[in-house]
Structures are given as structure tokens and as C-alpha cells.
Design a protein around this nucleic acid. Structure first.
Lengths: 150, 150
DNA sequence: CGCTAATATGACTTTTTTGTCAAGTATATT
DNA sequence: AATATACTTGACAAAAAAGTCATATTAGCG
């Protein structure tokens, strides 16, 4: 139960875009250098976010990436869904890897209830947090989140 | 952001032990067959739980595994910590894999705030749910959880 | 005491996830 | 129009996680 690398680094790149003044783009190279990541990797991450419709790119000599919407209109939940796998009941039950043909509890399963309860609980957190909540210094972000979740 | 395979299948095995009458053990083979998993895998999972002090084993011909404590005294949080990695701020910041020497935000990081906020939020759910909450049929478990979390 | 049914352990293989690379396409600027 | 800079794409390589195997050890039971 942890944040995947793609979610982690993808969010960082996205926050670099969130910091831009309106109508300005930033290049992959610049994002990579600000985050200490390789350009190739940042490219891959931004492409994932682009496929999910969260960012767009401009090609050519003054090209780069920018958010498709204001950062107040993008939730952490959308970001995580674009970059990683957010579990659903379907995932839990259909990706059974044991040596039986299917999970032995398909009909009646207490475990499904917990994981799906937890999934909904987490979704609530992620979907109520927007990108602009995360821009700024650590103290400010911590205070904003604390106000909501403690 | 998802449940790992070890957490998933480890919890299933543990719930098989939780269903046992007091002072009774169940063999790896039996658990494997009830869950449709291979014996080798169940062995590995129960060994992890044993190292974490949640279960104990008896060797020899009538041997097997059993819980170390009543199921009402074991939380989901303990189980997940025994089987998977529950993220901490240290993990998030020190496992930087980019090509810079360290994360560029070590001093001041809004992302750290979110992930650690989310981690605490999830921990709350996991640590407030005990194994005995998860024993029984699906409807019963769902109702128990709903009462607490909705 | 010796056989059998069970756990214990660590090395190994397979699969999935991470991260890189190389060759291609678009566009602003001169 | 040529050029340089930037995004695009799919295949590949490396690392981590999942799952298996072979061998050793323990203990009940005849």
C-alpha cells in the first residue's frame, strides 16, 4: 500500500507546470533539471498526463508543456488515476493469480468489503485535494491540508 | 496507490487462521487449498506474518499455524506493515531514484505534506479495523465497516 | 527408533514496474 | 527553405516484486 514511483514523480512534474504563469509553457528539459530527473523519464510522465487530458504540449522551437485547466480544477485523484492504478473492486477480484481458476471467495467475500471500503475512503481524500492546494512552501501546504483532514 | 499482492493474499491466509476455534492450528496445505493458492506461496506469507509476531507455528506431524492473539486484538495496520511497505516520510524522501544526487525539494516540499497527510489518513483506517471485523459474510462485514466509515 | 507429515530457509525464476534509448515529426526563427 | 529545438513513439534494459523449488529440520506416532 504505497505511492508508486510514477505517481510520485508525475505529480512533481505536474506541479512544475502548475507554478507557471498563465499561457506559458515549460520544456521537458527544464522540468527535468528542476526535479533532478532524466529528460527521457519526464517525457514519459508528461506524455501519460497528456494522454489523460490533464496537460497539452506545443511542439517546435519554443514548445513545451502546460496544464489544460487551472490548477484549482485538477484533483489529485485525476492525477493518480492518470499515472498509476487506483484499485477498484474489479481489480481486486479479477486479478487473482493463485493456482485455482478464480478466487475462492467470489460469491461471498469479507476482504472485498474492506479493500473497497478503503478504496472509497482514499478516493475521498484524493478527489477533494486540488493541485493548487499543493503549490507553495511546505508550511503553507501542511496547514491547508491539516485544516481539512485533522 | 494500491494493495500489493502480498498484503492481499497474506490477509486472506490470516483470516483463515482467525476462523479457527481456540487452540487449534491449521496446516499450510489446508490454507492453500481453501484459498486456491500454492502451498509454497502460503508458506512464504505465513512466515512473514510469523516474523512479525502475528502468528506462530507448530512443527511436526500435527503442526500448523495459529494466531498469537485473539483476532479482536490484531489490526489491519499491523497486518499491512508485516506484509507490505507502508509509506513514511522517510521512504518518500530518501528513495529518490532520479539522476540528481538527492531530491531537489529536501528543504521545502509541498509534496511531502500531501503524501504524509494521506499516509496518516490511511493509517487511521487501517489501525481502527481489527481482524475480527472482517470475519463473517460479506453483508455483515460491509455493514460493520459502513457503520464506522460513512 | 524410524517413518511420515509438517514447518524453515535461502536461492532461484518469472513477471511487472521503472527508466532509457534511438529514430522520427513538428514548428519558430533566421 | 534550412536549421535548431522541442515533442512523439515504440522498443528495449534494468530493477523490484511475486511466486517456486529443493533441501533441511522438527515432532508425533507406531
Amino acid at each position: 500500500m504505497k505511492i508508486t514511483a510514477q505517481e510520485e514523480y508525475g505529480l512533481r512534474c505536474l506541479l512544475q507546470l502548475a507554478k507557471l504563469p498563465q499561457d506559458q509553457v515549460v520544456s521537458v528539459k527544464e522540468v527535468a533539471s528542476r526535479e533532478g530527473l532524466s529528460s527521457a523519464y519526464v517525457e514519459k510522465l508528461l506524455r501519460l498526463l497528456s494522454k489523460a487530458g490533464l496537460v497539452h504540449s506545443l511542439r517546435g522551437i519554443r514548445g513545451g508543456y502546460a496544464l489544460n485547466r487551472p490548477s484549482s480544477a485538477i484533483t489529485l485523484g485525476e492525477v493518480v488515476r492518470a499515472l498509476g492504478t487506483v484499485q477498484t473492486t474489479d481489480h481486486i477480484c479479477n486479478q487473482f493469480t493463485g493456482n485455482a481458476l478464480a478466487c475462492t471467495h467470489l460469491m461471498d467475500c469479507g476482504i472485498r468489503s474492506v479493500w473497497s471500503g478503503l478504496t472509497i475512503y482514499i478516493k475521498h481524500f484524493l478527489d477533494s485535494t486540488t493541485l493548487d492546494n499543493l503549490v507553495g512552501n511546505e508550511r503553507a501546504v501542511t496547514e491547508r491540508l491539516a485544516k481539512r483532514w485533522v
